[in-house]
């Protein structure tokens, strides 16, 4: 189940600068675990919640041309030759109304 993954600039510190990496897994959750075994720390930037049970709210992930939020999130199915694209959300706003969890020192939110 080989999948191509497009990595945004800000996360290429985890991939040795590579823009495109390969991974395996029949779901998005399995792919992230596989990627993390070679690109340690990457998964932590993509998932949130207890034990990484959900997608990070401000990271967009697409399988081919579809937003995975409409494909089952971390349970989204992957097939051989699929392309996964990771894009940090471009978001913000004038009022500090967003519930921002306190970050660990040295842990940069995406």
């Amino acid at each position: 189940m080989a999948v191509q993954v497009r990595v945004p600039t800000i996360l290429r510190t985890y991939t040795g600068g590579a823009k495109l990496v390969e991974g395996t897994g029949d779901t998005l959750a399995a792919l992230f675990l596989d990627l993390d075994s070679r690109h340690s720390g990457l998964r932590g930037r993509l998932v949130a919640g207890d034990e990484g049970a959900e997608l990070h709210r401000f990271v967009n992930i697409y399988i081919n041309d579809e937003d995975v939020r409409f494909l089952g999130g971390l349970d989204a199915k992957l097939g051989d030759g699929d392309e996964v694209t990771i894009l940090p959300a471009v978001a913000g706003g004038g009022v500090d109304a967003l519930p921002v969890p306190s970050s660990r020192p040295g842990h940069r939110r995406i």
Binding site: T9, A91, G92, A97, V100
Partner: peptide, 25 residues
């Protein structure tokens, strides 16, 4: 350039803007 407007506050990044900024270049 990545731009957005603030409609009731000054043109200065909010804490939300800062915590979500993902394009250092």
């Amino acid at each position: 350039v990545i731009y957005h407007s603030h409609t009731a506050t000054e043109a200065y990044p909010s804490r939300t803007d800062i915590s979500l900024a993902a394009e250092p270049g």
